[in-house]
């Protein structure tokens, strides 16, 4: 029982990342009809927003180390510490959560630029060509990041106060053995919050209503005199922000390097396909489902029965789903079903 609960928890934070990326992917597909292979690169850009923010905060100056008296020693002290003392240090400690405030405008800008500069010319082209051009863009973005930040993973720790593990087991009145890192719980809560916000935005605002109408019948909405193109552009920006936020918050869990996006992209595509192309609830639930399945498959008991199952489980599920139920778990009837 404990082991099962722990595996579910383990799956949830990864599932949260899958769900956020898949949500953006399927949002873009449902509105613009574009298959975006560069979406993983946007996740990566978000992660590097956090890295950049941390670097900016820790810009340092060399000062003489007073504690060493025998010779002249120097140490690097961040400007923030010099200016604000302990407050400055606390800000540096909280770099990752704070970088969200930088990531949102930056990612929105990147998304709008990308849509206006490239994607809009590919609405009418075939899916294969969309895949190819965004694949090229993903390579370019990845290499640019690599040339600035190098090829090694960059550690971006979570704030000290949440660095430990939460005694989830004793909270729930179960065994004390179930402990779980705080940050992963935060990630889970954060991803649920973002998912909820996107759904609420689409469901309860006029803007969201128009977008949903445009998703089901673009032409009619256009004939009613609504500039649906511009709204879809903004939706693309939102999808970019969601992917970026997923990246920002994931940095303490996995130190980002330049190809982190590619690793997530392939899995997220599988998630979208399993959930059903163009179905938002499908993408989210498939994301969590596959995350949990993956963590169950990596249990030793399971691995001893099916060796190697943890490596292939997600792809295996995708193959089975595509063959048995081509439109995915929650796909709408008739959307790219053949």
């Amino acid at each position: 029982m404990d082991a099962i609960l722990l595996q579910i928890l383990n799956g949830l934070d990864k599932g949260g990342a899958y769900a956020l990326i898949a949500l953006g992917l399927t949002l873009v597909f449902g509105t613009l009809g574009v298959v975006n292979f560069a979406h993983g690169a946007l996740f990566m850009l978000g992660a590097f927003c956090a890295v950049t923010f941390q670097k900016i905060l820790t810009i340092s100056v060399k000062v003489k180390d007073e504690s060493v008296t025998f010779f002249d020693a120097y140490k690097e002290v961040p400007y923030l510490e010099i200016w604000w003392g302990d407050t400055g240090l606390a800000i540096i400690d909280w770099a990752v959560p704070l970088s969200i405030f930088m990531a949102i405008p930056v990612m929105l800008l990147i998304g709008l630029l990308m849509e206006r500069g490239l994607i809009q010319y590919f609405y009418k082209r075939t899916h294969a060509e969309q895949i190819l051009v965004t694949f090229g863009l993903a390579i370019v973005l990845q290499e640019i990041v690599k040339s600035f930040f190098g090829a090694n993973p960059i550690p971006t720790p979570a704030p000290d106060i949440v660095a430990g593990s939460a005694a989830v087991g004793s909270w729930l009145g179960l065994s004390d053995n179930i402990v779980y890192p705080y940050w992963r719980l935060i990630y889970l809560a954060f991803s649920l919050l973002v998912i909820f916000a996107v759904f609420a935005f689409l469901q309860f605002t006029t803007f969201g209503m128009v977008v949903r109408a445009g998703m089901s019948d673009r032409e009619t909405v256009g004939l009613l005199g609504i500039n649906i193109e511009r709204r879809f552009t903004i939706v693309f920006g939102i999808a970019t922000v969601v992917a970026g936020l997923a990246g920002v918050m994931y940095t303490p869990i996995l130190p980002p390097d330049y190809h982190i996006g590619m690793d997530f992209l392939v899995l997220s595509f599988v998630v979208v396909v399993v959930g059903g192309m163009g179905s938002l609830p499908g993408a989210v639930s498939a994301g969590f489902l596959l995350g949990i399945l993956q963590s169950f498959a990596s249990m030793n008991e399971v691995k001893s029965i099916f060796p190697g199952i943890d490596q292939i489980i997600i792809y295996l599920v995708a193959v089975v789903v595509l063959l048995v139920r081509p439109r995915g778990l929650m796909g709408r009837k008739g959307v790219m079903e053949d």
Binding site: M277, P326, M336
Partner: peptide
Amino acid sequence: RTGIYFSIL
């Protein structure tokens, strides 16, 4: 399957 589904498979 055809199209993007074939690619994913």
